[in-house]
Each structure stands twice: as structure tokens, then as C-alpha cells.
Simulated scan of single mutants.
Amino acid sequence: MISITKKGLIGCKNSAIEELKGEFTKRQCIVLPQLLDNELLDKLISNIDDASFYERQHFAGNKIFATDLSVPSKNVALHQFNFLFNNTRLFRLIETITDLPGVRGFSGRIYRNLPGTSHFLDWHDDKSTPTRLIGLSINLSYQRYEGGTFQIRKKGDKKYLTEVGCTNPGDAHIFKVSHQLEHRVTEVTGNFPRTAGAGWFTSEPASLILKQ
């Protein structure tokens, strides 16, 4: 199991990486169970619990494709999230799994979808920013939500390449960002919200990168 810990990135065995490469080639998306270890996850979620969220709309051109509660850009939880994933060793691993070179940075956000509200995340391709190469989503919810399933497909195709739940805390998935692909997250139902970190491995460097 590949995991980000205080001591760095662990579990990067060649056999596991080859299996992930094959799955990514087929589905354009793979699951990375417990990508954040429990100690780092506890600290991040604790900071998220102290955060003040705000209502946010997301646009692709003139179309709103998502609404949610977002953590402000200067919040400590968001800085912690970006710090953990701006890791050059992680960049090289992502390049190997996806067979996509040129990862130089990571930029992310933290958001929450509440059940029984107007929050939604409809089909889009994430290419509003051309430097985005690979997307990432990680579950930052301790309470088990219902719904909130990630789906990815080729544009114009009704058949999904894959569907991902990732309802365990710290579970993540990565997916290819391309003009030929689109993805969405289904409505959150039940009694508990879905809190997630979403971000992109990019071809441009971030301001803070951890070298390991």
C-alpha cells in the first residue's frame, strides 16, 4: 500500500506500481487506499473541523457545474493539504503510474457537499487550467456518507470508464485530466456530509515543494 507518512512516501514496490499502471491505462483512474496515514489524516481533519467554510459556485465558461462549501485559500488546513502533496518523490511516482511526464507541482482545494442541499458536481473536464495533468480526490470525512460517487467517461459516451466510492477516510483516487474525458460526483445523500480534498498535479511548479 502506497502511503504518505511523516517519514515520507512508503510502499512503492515495483510489483504494485506495475499493477496500478495497468489499471490506470484501462480505466484512466485508480484508487490509492489510505494514501494519507492516520497520524497525518487526524491532524488535517482536525484543522478542517476548525475551518470556516463559505458557499462557492464553480464555472466552466458561463455554466455553473458545481456548488459546495469551500475552505478559504488562506486556511491552515488548505496549506497543510498542499504541503503534503507537493512532494517530488510523489510527482515521480505519479508520472510512472500514469505514463505522463512533466509533473512539477500540485494545487488543491478542500470542499464539502451537504446532503439535502443544492450542492452538486456535474460533468466537466478540469481543463479550464491548461497546466493540469492528473486530478486527485481524497476522502477527508470520518463519518461514512452515502452517494458522492466519482464517475469518469469519454466525452459523449454514456458508459463509464469506472466509478469510485472512496468512503474510507484517507482513501484517494487519481484520474487523467484531458479534453477527451469528463467526470462528475453524484449527489450526496443520507445523514452525513462528504468532505474531500481535490487537486491537480500540474506542469508548473507550486510555490512550496517538499523534496524527498
Score class of each variant (00 low, 15 high):
residue 212 Q to F: 01
residue 64 I to C: 10
residue 198 A to Q: 08
residue 123 W to V: 12
residue 132 R to K: 15
residue 34 Q to H: 14
residue 113 N to W: 05
residue 4 I to S: 00
residue 10 I to Y: 08
residue 66 A to V: 07
residue 189 T to K: 14
residue 44 L to K: 04
residue 186 T to W: 01
residue 98 T to P: 04
residue 145 Y to I: 10
residue 91 F to M: 08
residue 61 G to K: 14
residue 5 T to I: 09
residue 36 L to F: 00
residue 11 G to Q: 07
residue 28 Q to K: 15
residue 209 I to E: 10
residue 16 A to K: 09
residue 200 W to T: 05
residue 74 K to S: 10
residue 133 L to K: 13
residue 154 K to M: 04
residue 161 L to S: 05
residue 154 K to V: 04
residue 105 G to Y: 01
residue 166 C to Y: 03
residue 212 Q to K: 06
residue 72 P to S: 11
residue 183 H to M: 01
residue 129 T to E: 14
residue 48 I to G: 02
residue 71 V to F: 00
residue 96 T to I: 03
residue 122 D to P: 00
residue 73 S to Y: 06
residue 90 L to P: 02
residue 11 G to K: 08
residue 110 I to E: 10
residue 54 Y to T: 14
residue 138 I to Y: 02
residue 140 L to T: 05
residue 162 T to M: 03
residue 194 R to M: 03
residue 93 L to G: 04
residue 89 R to V: 08
residue 112 R to Y: 01
residue 18 E to R: 15
residue 76 V to G: 00
residue 140 L to S: 07
residue 112 R to W: 03
residue 130 P to I: 15
residue 177 V to G: 01
residue 180 Q to E: 13
residue 202 T to S: 15
residue 172 A to T: 07
residue 177 V to W: 01
residue 140 L to E: 10
residue 22 G to P: 04
residue 1 M to I: 05
residue 180 Q to M: 08
residue 128 S to I: 13
residue 2 I to P: 04
residue 146 E to Q: 15
residue 184 R to Q: 15
residue 64 I to A: 12
residue 164 V to M: 06
residue 185 V to W: 00
residue 59 F to Y: 15
residue 200 W to K: 05
residue 124 H to G: 07
residue 76 V to H: 07
residue 105 G to H: 03
residue 33 P to M: 11
residue 184 R to W: 01
residue 141 S to E: 10
residue 126 D to Y: 10
residue 176 K to W: 01
residue 126 D to I: 05
residue 201 F to V: 07
residue 56 R to N: 11
residue 75 N to V: 00
residue 40 L to D: 11
residue 127 K to C: 14
residue 160 Y to N: 13
residue 53 F to S: 09
residue 59 F to G: 06
residue 43 K to S: 11
residue 101 P to E: 11
residue 112 R to I: 07
residue 79 H to Y: 08
residue 129 T to K: 12
residue 167 T to N: 14
residue 123 W to Y: 12
residue 53 F to L: 13
residue 92 R to Y: 05
residue 132 R to C: 08
residue 62 N to S: 15
residue 102 G to P: 00
residue 42 D to Q: 08
residue 195 T to Q: 15
residue 204 E to R: 09
residue 119 H to W: 04
residue 116 G to D: 12
residue 4 I to L: 07
residue 50 D to M: 07
residue 98 T to W: 03
residue 12 C to I: 13
residue 173 H to W: 13
residue 34 Q to S: 13
residue 136 L to V: 11
residue 177 V to T: 14
residue 93 L to T: 11
residue 124 H to A: 09
residue 47 N to L: 13
residue 133 L to D: 05
residue 182 E to H: 04
residue 185 V to C: 02
residue 149 T to D: 13
residue 36 L to Q: 12
residue 91 F to E: 10
residue 124 H to C: 06
residue 72 P to N: 13
residue 202 T to R: 15
residue 127 K to Q: 15
residue 104 R to V: 01
residue 119 H to V: 12
residue 9 L to D: 13
residue 174 I to P: 02
residue 36 L to N: 09
residue 212 Q to H: 09
